[in-house]
Amino acid sequence: MPPRRQRDRVSEDALTDRTGRGWDDWFALLDAWGGTGRNHTEIAAHLRDEHGVDGWWAQTVAVAYEQERGMREAHQQADGFTVNASKTINADAAAVHLAVTDDRKRRDWLADAPLRLRTARAPKSARFDWGDHARVNVFVVARGESRCSIQIEHSRLESADDVEPTREYWRARLDDLKSRLE
């Protein structure tokens, strides 16, 4: 059995509280069912349909099981790898959203990004194409009148080797954005 990959896993207590079982129990149950020979959709559906696990929790257990059994790497999704970065900024959500969606303002802190805006919902979200394949989703959450958090989700990365460099890239870019808005 490969070593556990618990870095991003929901706590045992939270899982047990919401699903009635802990990690080892779910993994044993899925092993007995033949989970390692099933795909993600089948595992999640089995958890939902046969064991009454709510959708998000079924997905969470299925992903953790796949990682635990070496069927999926950390940060791996069906369409590639996904990484997240976030920052709290002492600025209102509308100003942060504008700094993301306005081409001229965005170039000030993100000059080298091959972004193409897909959709935007001011002041809460924006979705971009990154080059020809990847996607970037931006979420802005107000934390009061003049404070908010910005969360970046960069998906469809080609390999696990892209995860940490991409996370570091976004952390540096968000630091720059913060310094310009505060």
Rank of each mutant, 00 (worst) to 15 (best):
W56E: 01
W56F: 05
W57A: 02
W57C: 02
W57V: 00
W57G: 01
A58Y: 00
A58V: 01
A58P: 00
Q59S: 07
Q59G: 04
Q59M: 07
Q59K: 11
Q59N: 12
Q59F: 02
V61D: 07
V61P: 03
V61H: 08
V61Y: 09
V61F: 09
V61K: 10
V61Q: 09
V61S: 08
A62D: 00
A62I: 02
A62N: 02
V63F: 15
A64Y: 06
A64L: 09
A64G: 01
A64K: 10
Y65I: 02
Y65V: 02
Y65F: 10
E66L: 12
E66T: 00
E66Q: 14
Q67D: 02
E68W: 12
E68P: 01
R69P: 01
R69A: 05
R69H: 07
M71T: 03
R72E: 03
R72T: 00
R72I: 02
R72M: 04
R72G: 01
R72K: 11
E73L: 12
E73Q: 13
E73F: 08
E73T: 05
A74Y: 02
A74I: 09
H75E: 04
H75K: 08
H75R: 13
Q76E: 14
Q77K: 14
Q77W: 12
Q77H: 15
Q77R: 15
Q77F: 10
A78T: 12
A78L: 14
A78P: 05
A78R: 14
A78Q: 13
G80P: 01
G80H: 12
F81V: 01
F81T: 03
F81Y: 14
F81C: 05
V83L: 11
V83R: 13
N84V: 00
N84I: 02
A85M: 10
S86E: 10
K87N: 07
K87C: 06
T88M: 14
T88W: 12
T88K: 15
T88V: 15
T88R: 15
T88Q: 15
T88Y: 11
I89W: 10
I89T: 06
N90W: 06
N90P: 00
N90Y: 05
N90V: 04
N90H: 11
A91W: 07
D92M: 11
D92V: 05
A93G: 01
A93E: 03
A94L: 08
A94Q: 09
A94C: 00
V96G: 10
V96L: 14
H97K: 08
H97C: 08
H97I: 01
